[in-house]
Amino acid sequence: MVTTDEKGPLTAKKKSVIIRSCDGDEFLVSESAAVLSTSLKKILEEKEDRLIHLSDIDNKTLAMVIAYLSTHADDGLSDDLKRSFDQEFVSGKEFDVLKYLVLATDTLQVTCLCYTVAKKMADIMKNKLVEWVRREFDIQNDYTPEAEAEIRRLDAWAWDDRQLEDD
């Protein structure tokens, strides 16, 4: 891996990439930020092209991901500041927003952000009844009552004491 130290921070900052969302808007991103995404890094290593088109990431999501990448590429920020930025980043976001984010980070292979967002989504589901999750995420229950009873019987241990709450 080529570190900015070897290339010198100035040259690394000067280089930038243009990323286009599926809505057609374009974002100018410094290369040091872009390479935090493993997918973008691979593309940049293969070809010198400076325009990358992401056919399944919308404007709003891409802007968020880029804000994240730019913050994490900023050498002037301490690790503590970056960590609190991560916390702030996912807090209070709608589940749908997180869903698009987790997809985008999965595609772009931004491991840390993918971890943070997936954890946040899991936290939303934690300690919730199946019925709550179904209702909250509009999941259509396609089981027959008999099939449902059979599943409960098969893994009875997972339901034997019901401490979970329905909010």
């Binding site: 899991a122 589901m125 934690k126 300690n127 199946v130 999750v133 179904r134 999941i139 259509q140 229950n141 396609d142 089981y143 449902e148 599943i151 409960r152 893994d155 241990w157 997972a158 339901w159």
Partner: peptide
């Protein structure tokens, strides 16, 4: 999620 919570999700659909 815990093993239990993850197992329970099989009932969603």
């Amino acid at each position: 999620l815990s093993q239990k919570e993850a197992t329970q999700t099989c009932l969603l659909a």
